[in-house]
């Protein structure tokens, strides 16, 4: 995980913002990346928020709102006009948070488990 963060900080397409308390304790962070579009649908370039997290005892204080706002500003500065992210349908808190920030539904990802006997044991 630490190695992942270190590589993000080096990568100009990656953006990471943190929320600090008292100038020394990190209580939350958000990360994003600038990506190319798929080539056939707009947009040609898009931002993706890959992470947003606030330590449990510091939630509902507006920290994520500020983290996301700062991250969106940075993405906008990189020429991004559209930003996407994925949130689990069970994560009601996260969905309520993003909706309160003006995000709306684009696609629904559905999943089907595969019975074990159906799988290729060599795979």
């Amino acid at each position: 995980m630490a190695a992942t963060f270190a590589s993000w900080l080096q990568d100009p397409a990656r953006l990471v913002v943190v929320a600090e308390e008292g100038g020394r304790m990190v209580v939350g962070f958000a990360a994003g990346v600038v990506l190319q579009g798929n080539g056939w649908q707009i947009p040609a370039r898009l931002g993706r928020i890959t992470d947003a997290y606030v330590a449990r005892p510091r939630r509902r204080l507006g920290i994520a709102r500020r983290l996301a706002g700062r991250l969106l500003d940075l993405l906008y500065e990189k020429g991004v006009g559209t930003v996407r992210l994925a949130a689990a349908v069970q994560n009601e808190g996260a969905l309520a948070f993003w909706q309160s920030m003006g995000w709306s539904d684009l696609e629904t990802v559905l999943e089907r488990a595969v019975p074990v006997e159906g799988r290729d044991p060599e795979a």
């Binding site: 969106l72 930003v83 709306s104």
Partner: peptide
């Protein structure tokens, strides 16, 4: 199939 996650979008423009 059952819903797993939502892809959310926001326009900055």
């Amino acid at each position: 199939f059952a819903p797993l996650q939502l892809e959310l979008e926001r326009s900055l423009d």
